[in-house]
Design a protein around this nucleic acid. Structure first.
Lengths: 250, 250
DNA sequence: CACGATTTTATGTATAGACATATAGAGACG
DNA sequence: CGTCTCTATATGTCTATACATAAAATCGTG
């Protein structure tokens, strides 16, 4: 409140609509700790009189805060500050080609192996779901400026993604192809560290025993497994960045 | 549409309010690719007549989709499907104590070293910002059922977090203490892989040369650095899970 | 006191209407 | 043909009102 400055005009490039003002106000109190987790936000009717507006307006502000997971709304009880999903962050895993291009380096791609087969027990276990028919198994390598960047080992469920049968994975990396042709609803990433074995070391041109970052990604559409991929990055050179930012200043 | 089953009753635990129905409907079309990125969503007045409701209702659905970054709304032009933030996912990094407790294992904590000093050049570089006064440097170890789980190496800016001077980090892990006492607005995680050196191997009770997952986390409040921490996990045993889930199914 | 029924209340959804605002596209003009 | 202005229009915000719904609080009864 009374954030008005000594300037006569308000902040120039601002659009201080009322509901947004209320949202920012409450958000500020939460993020500064003035209203700690568990604290009950004033009732809508209190906010109505405090800001001199209708219930729809404060409700809109509270709804957005709820959608952003900052507060929890409970009928009859009120709205409460949520324990921030504290150490959760948005992990951006760019498409490898885009990632390398963004670094201003030239992208290189090599298909190492690509075969189609009826799913065996290991394939089924890896894809996670029951009876699978045919799958495509792909091994390939991504490089930046000619230096190995990551190796990829992928399995695609051909029943779930029949279009993949017609794709030319020698010309286009499977990750990019899937991104542009196959919509998905759920993905899970598992990140771990291993040391390079002989094969990985050779493919990545690093020493045996050097650390590697591993990303295992599974992708589903409506609970149906589409693809499973393991990406191996030379561990010291590559970093994944995850960032969390409150929307206070955004 | 027409997801109704052969059962006479609708889905029991469902609350198919109209605006949510509209939201799910549009979301489905986007996620299945029926409406690809760039596609113009029907105008609000079209949706009004299609669903037979008021503009506020369709607007609420569209607003939520916009807040979820699935569509972009432009005055006069309409609403458009955004290119999904494709490979971004929510990375959940739980508080270590909570994480271990969640696994049903007993949490152990040992403070290895804790000292206060005037920030040196390395400290300033690590915290990222300019002139820092005093800092607290902490080294500690987390264990699960007596087995080393992770080692932590942390720096806290005492000027930004003066309360930390009074905290007893022998009794409470710095991560937990900070979580409960210090609000923050931004955090960045950098994930990489290294092999254990002699010191890390000893602290984690693993072999020298064994892979380790490293998380470097920096935390700010309104762009001011609060703390920088490096967590070292035995790489094969530990996995970070990041999950993306569309809200299609709830 | 324990337990089930009833009331109260804060949020959830929805409406019709109003005005604001940005801007794409049309028309005017040089 | 380029540029400028104007206008039509889709979204953005807000109101006052209405009824639905879940759950806390209260009451009543055994």
């Amino acid at each position: 409140m009374s954030l008005s400055t000594e300037r006569g005009k308000l902040q120039p490039a601002d659009k201080p609509t009322l509901y947004k003002q209320i949202r920012i106000d409450i958000e500020r109190r939460i993020l500064t700790g003035e209203w700690p987790p568990g604290h009950r936000i004033p009732f809508e009717h209190e906010l109505m009189s405090r800001y001199g507006c209708s219930r729809m307006t404060v409700s809109k502000a509270l709804s957005e805060l709820a959608q952003a997971d900052l507060i929890e709304r409970r009928r009859k009880a009120g709205s409460f500050v949520r324990r921030p999903t504290f150490l959760s962050a948005v992990l951006k895993i760019a498409d490898i080609r885009a990632e390398i291009n963004a670094l201003g380096r030239s992208y290189g791609y090599e298909l190492i192996q690509c075969s189609r087969r009826t799913a065996n027990a290991a394939d089924r276990a890896r894809l996670g779901a029951g009876k699978t028919g045919k799958v495509i198994a792909i091994a390939c390598r991504h490089s930046a400026d000619g230096v190995p960047f990551a190796i990829e080992d992928r399995l695609i469920d051909l029943d779930a993604v029949p279009e993949a049968a017609a794709a030319d994975f020698a010309a286009e990396p499977p990750g990019s192809w899937l991104l542009h042709h196959v919509p998905w609803t759920e993905a899970e990433h598992s990140i771990s560290a291993i040391v390079a074995d002989e094969q990985a070391a050779a493919a990545l041109d690093i020493a045996i025993g050097a650390p590697c970052l591993v990303i295992d990604r599974h992708t589903w559409r409506s609970a149906r497994p589409l693809t499973a991929v393991r990406l191996l990055y030379p561990g010291e050179s590559h970093k994944l960045i995850a960032r969390f930012k409150g929307s206070l200043e955004g």
